[in-house]
């Protein structure tokens, strides 16, 4: 399945079924992330329900502190 993450194409295996799976795949688990899935901002509890499909667009933003 091919999806777009932060503007770049990403080929993911079938076992990556939902947003939570994608977070694990990207090794971002446990980090506070703002996630938009097809232009819809998701609450954390929605990560497992948000099923990924071919062509989906995902935006992932995290805050940093440096200045």
């Amino acid at each position: 399945m091919k999806i777009t993450v932060n503007g770049n194409g990403l080929e993911v295996q079938e076992e990556v079924k939902h947003i939570k799976g994608l977070i694990d795949f990207l090794e971002l688990e446990g980090k506070p992330l703002i996630i938009e899935h097809n232009q819809q901002i998701l609450q954390k509890e929605e990560h497992e329900k948000a099923v990924l499909e071919n062509g989906d667009k995902v935006e992932i933003v995290h805050f940093v502190g440096g200045g």
Binding site: N6, G7, N8, I34, E36, Q39, I41, E59, I60, V61, H62
Partner: peptide, 17 residues
């Protein structure tokens, strides 16, 4: 947000937050 090294650029419509 962006990562210049990874060539990533992201915009999120923030109003819903």
């Amino acid at each position: 947000s962006f990562d210049l090294w990874k060539n990533e650029y992201t915009e999120i419509e923030a109003a819903a937050l």
